[in-house]
Design a protein around this nucleic acid. Structure first.
Lengths: 97, 97
DNA sequence: TAGATATTTAAATAATTATCTAAATATCTA
DNA sequence: TAGATATTTAGATAATTATTTAAATATCTA
């Protein structure tokens, strides 16, 4: 299975895409993120975990809070996937996904 | 709900991503596509339908066959979504998703 | 150390999605 | 028009995913 499978699955959920866009503006704690949704904290925690497993975000504890921030590396790889589709026939060789 | 929701959901499945990559190389009939998978034709038909609803592919009947081909428009919009994430803080205004 | 705050983990349930078999539709050809 | 081929649609089931409540863990502070 492609390494991009988890990130693609992670971004298929609108709540998680919104979280990503919030983190684009600034790093935030789990609690701050949860405040923006009509959803319990455990649900947001679950979504954050999926984003983390997909390596789309990084978490770091600072005291009582856990800060979440974007990890742009995998986003770059996803952009490459789309480029490969959008580009003319043939494209790069050795692509996995 | 964002207009990108369906395409994101559509691309979260590895079978559908593989179909997209096959169609990048050349247009194919539903039957040709199905031959590449360990899956029944109705299952592939279901996946093609999801890709079609997401406007990632176009279908056109030619005689007994139905040819599928890429519709790159939505891919472009998805690339823009990723650019917006990858770019520096702020980014373009008026983004919906 | 006890209590308060922040967050996650666990367990259950509801909702969504993928897959199959069987049947239907559309087209071609003899 | 009857039979063959290509594909989809319908209906059922299994698997996955999202969500909730309740409980657990980690950290801070009085």
């Amino acid at each position: 299975m492609s390494i991009l499978n988890m990130p693609f699955k992670a971004l298929s959920d609108p709540t998680r895409r919104k979280i990503i866009q919030m983190l684009k503006e600034r790093d935030m704690t789990a609690g701050e993120i949860a405040e923006h949704f009509n959803m319990t904290k455990p649900s947001i925690s679950h979504h954050l975990n999926i984003l983390k497993q997909a390596e789309l975000v990084i978490d770091e504890r600072k005291g009582q809070n856990i800060y979440y921030s974007l990890n742009t590396t995998v986003f770059q790889e996803m952009v490459n996937w789309f480029f490969n589709i959008t580009d003319k026939k043939g494209g790069s060789i050795g692509e996995e996904d």
